[in-house]
Design a protein around this nucleic acid. Structure first.
Length: 471
RNA sequence: GGCCCCAUCGUCUAUCGGUUAGGACGCGACCCUUUCAAGGUCGAGAGACGGGUUCGACUCCCGUUGGGGCUACCA
C-alpha cells in the first residue's frame, strides 16, 4: 500500500510560505515513496473562505511545481458524512448533546479568564438524563454535539518529534458538530482523513495540540491513527511567527518580486529540512531522492530573505538569458517600459549575473533603455559625495575623450582602447575613472564593463547622460 | 495561568558519545579584472545555564532560564 498524504489549506487567506513549505514536504514524501498526494481545501469556515483564495492557493502550488494526484476536494461538500459521524458517536454515547448557548459559554470563559485560569467545559450537559434531552430536543432547543473525552494517556510517536504525550483529563469535551449541523475542524479533519485513507499526516507544529483531540476521535470511531509528522513553523527575523508585519509572507509576493519558482522551492525545502550534507542547490530529482522525514528539524526556522535572494541569483546565473526573456518582459510591462522592438536578450545577459531577482534584471534593462529610469542609488550617491568636485571633473574628461570618437568607432573594442588611453594619460586607475561613468549612465555602481555599457546605451545617449551627471 | 513543543556561529544547518565543532547566507580582507559583478582564497563568528550518567559529552537524563504553539459552536 503506497502512503497517502495530504495538504489541507483553508482558503481564508493567501498561500503563506509556511503553508507552501508544508505542501512541499508532503509532496516530497509522496514522490519519494511512490505515494499519493491529495489536495483538500478546508472550507468549512464559510464566513472566511472564498473562491478567490482557493484559486490563489491552486495557482501558487502550480507555480512552485507542486503537483497533486487527487483533488482538490472541498471539505464543505462532505458535511453529510461529518454529521453522520457525529451522530454515530452520539448513538454510542461517545458523544452527547450540549444545550449550552454561546452566551453562557462566553460568560463562563470570561469568569475563568478573570480567575486567572483557562476555561474548560465542565461536561454538565453530558450528565443530563435521557428524558430531559428528549424533551428539549422535542421542544426544538438548539444543541451542539460534544465528544466525551476519556481519561488516560493520549500519546503518539511523532515522525519528527518522537514521543509526544498528553493526558485526557487536561482536555475537555470539545464540540464536534455545531448547532447548525456543520462540523468543527477536528471532526472534519479526522472524518476526511479516514475517508481518504490518509496514512501520514504531515502538517505544521501548531497542530500538535489538536492531535490528542483527533486521536481521541479516531479511538471513539474505532479507526487506526495515521502517522503524524509535525514540521516546525517559519518565523520572522524577530523570532515571532511570520506575519504580514514581517513584509512578504505570501508566495505570490515573491513571485511578483521576481523570485524563480525553482529557487523558491529549493529554498523552502531547505528551511527546516536538511539532506544531511553540505548541499544547497538541489535539483528536483536529488531533492526527492534525498528526502526523508527524519531530516526534518524540530526547531522553528527563521525566514531569511537574503539567502533566498542569493539562491535566486544562483538560479538566475545558471539560466540562459533567452529563457529569462519572457518573465523579464512581464516585469517591464508592469513597470510601463516599452522595449520598442529592441532585442533584450543581450541586455539580460549583461546583467543577470549581477542580479538577484527578475525585478533587478528588469530594472537594469529599463535603465539601459530609458534615461528617465536612471535613479542614483545609495552607493551612487555615496561615491559622488566621496569624490566631491572630482566626480564632475572625471566625468568631464571622460566626456571629452569619448565625444572624440566617431559614431562608427562606438564599439566595445574601440571604447575600451579609448578609455584605457584616457586613464593612461591622466595617470589614474581605470576603476577610479569608470565608476563615475557607471553612476552617470545607470545611477548605480554595478554594471557590465563600462565599455560594453557605453556601447549598449549608444553614443548620443551615453554622452548626454554623462554631461547631465557632470553638472 | 494551564497543557505541549523547542534550544549548535546573527540566519539556515552538519554532527546521530571520541571532530582543531564542518558547510551555506550575510559580513570583512585578499586574488582575478588597468573597471562592476560573478568566481576563487582566507578571516571573524556557535554548543543558553546548572547538575548528573560515562573513561569521555554539543550529542543521553534531570532541573533552570529563554523562546514558541495551543487554550472558540476558527482552521
Amino acid at each position: 500500500m503506497p502512503p497517502r498524504v495530504r495538504f489541507a489549506p483553508s482558503p481564508t487567506g493567501y498561500l503563506h510560505v509556511g503553508g507552501a513549505r508544508t505542501a512541499l514536504l508532503n509532496w516530497l514524501y509522496a514522490r519519494k515513496t511512490g505515494g499519493i498526494f491529495i489536495l483538500r481545501i478546508e472550507d468549512t469556515d464559510q464566513e472566511r473562505s472564498t473562491e478567490a483564495h482557493t484559486q490563489v492557493i491552486l495557482d501558487g502550488l502550480k507555480w512552485l511545481g507542486i503537483t497533486f494526484d487527487e483533488g482538490p476536494f472541498f471539505q464543505a461538500q462532505n458535511g453529510g458524512r461529518h454529521k453522520a459521524d457525529a451522530e454515530a458517536l452520539l448513538a454510542q454515547d461517545k458523544a452527547y448533546r450540549c444545550f449550552c448557548t454561546r452566551e453562557e459559554l462566553e460568560v463562563a470563559r470570561q469568569a475563568a479568564v478573570k480567575a486567572g485560569s483557562s476555561f474548560r467545559y465542565d461536561g454538565r450537559c453530558g450528565r443530563l438524563a435521557a428524558e430531559e434531552v428528549a424533551t428539549r430536543v422535542g421542544r426544538g432547543d438548539p444543541s451542539s454535539i460534544r465528544v466525551r473525552m476519556v481519561d488516560g494517556e493520549i500519546a503518539w510517536d511523532d515522525a519528527v518529534h518522537g514521543r509526544i504525550s498528553f493526558q485526557g483529563h487536561d482536555l475537555d469535551d470539545f464540540i464536534i458538530l455545531r448547532s447548525d449541523g456543520t462540523p468543527i475542524y477536528n471532526l472534519a479533519v479526522v472524518s476526511d482523513d479516514i475517508e481518504m485513507a490518509v496514512t501520514h499526516v504531515i502538517r505544521g507544529d501548531d497542530h500538535i495540540s489538536n492531535t490528542p483531540k483527533q486521536i481521541a476521535l479516531y479511538r471513539a470511531m474505532e479507526k487506526p491513527t495515521p502517522i503524524f509528522a509535525h514540521v516546525p513553523m517559519i518565523l520572522g527575523t524577530d523570532g515571532k511567527k511570520l506575519s504580514k508585519r514581517h513584509g512578504a509572507t505570501a508566495v505570490g509576493d515573491y513571485q511578483h518580486q521576481g523570485i524563480l519558482p525553482l529557487a523558491m522551492r529549493n529554498f523552502l525545502a531547505l528551511l527546516g529540512w536538511s539532506p544531511g550534507g553540505d548541499r544547497e542547490i538541489l535539483p528536483e530529482a536529488e531533492m526527492i531522492d534525498l528526502f526523508s522525514l527524519g531530516g526534518i528539524q524540530k526547531k522553528a526556522a527563521v525566514f531569511d530573505v537574503a539567502k533566498l535572494e542569493w539562491m535566486n541569483g544562483q538560479y538566475l546565473s545558471a539560466r540562459p538569458a533567452a529563457e529569462l526573456l519572457e518573465p523579464v518582459q512581464v516585469h517591464l510591462r508592469e513597470m510601463g517600459v516599452d522595449p520598442m522592438g529592441r532585442d533584450l536578450v543581450p541586455l539580460i545577459d549583461a546583467v543577470k549575473t549581477r542580479s538577484r531577482t527578475l525585478l533587478d534584471i528588469a530594472t537594469q534593462v529599463a535603465v539601459r533603455l530609458d534615461r528617465s529610469r536612471v535613479v542614483r542609488d545609495a552607493k551612487g550617491i555615496q561615491l559622488a559625495m566621496k569624490l566631491g568636485a572630482a566626480f564632475s571633473t572625471n566625468l568631464l574628461s571622460s566626456h571629452a575623450a569619448l565625444s572624440a570618437l566617431a559614431p562608427a568607432q562606438w564599439t566595445p573594442a574601440d571604447l575600451e582602447l579609448t578609455v584605457k588611453a584616457l586613464a593612461e594619460r591622466e595617470g589614474k586607475k581605470l576603476g577610479d575613472l569608470m565608476q563615475p561613468v557607471r553612476v552617470a549612465l545607470t545611477g548605480g555602481t554595478v554594471s557590465e564593463p563600462v565599455n560594453e555599457l557605453l556601447a549598449v546605451i549608444g553614443r548620443d545617449e551615453s554622452l548626454a547622460r554623462i554631461r547631465a551627471a557632470a553638472s
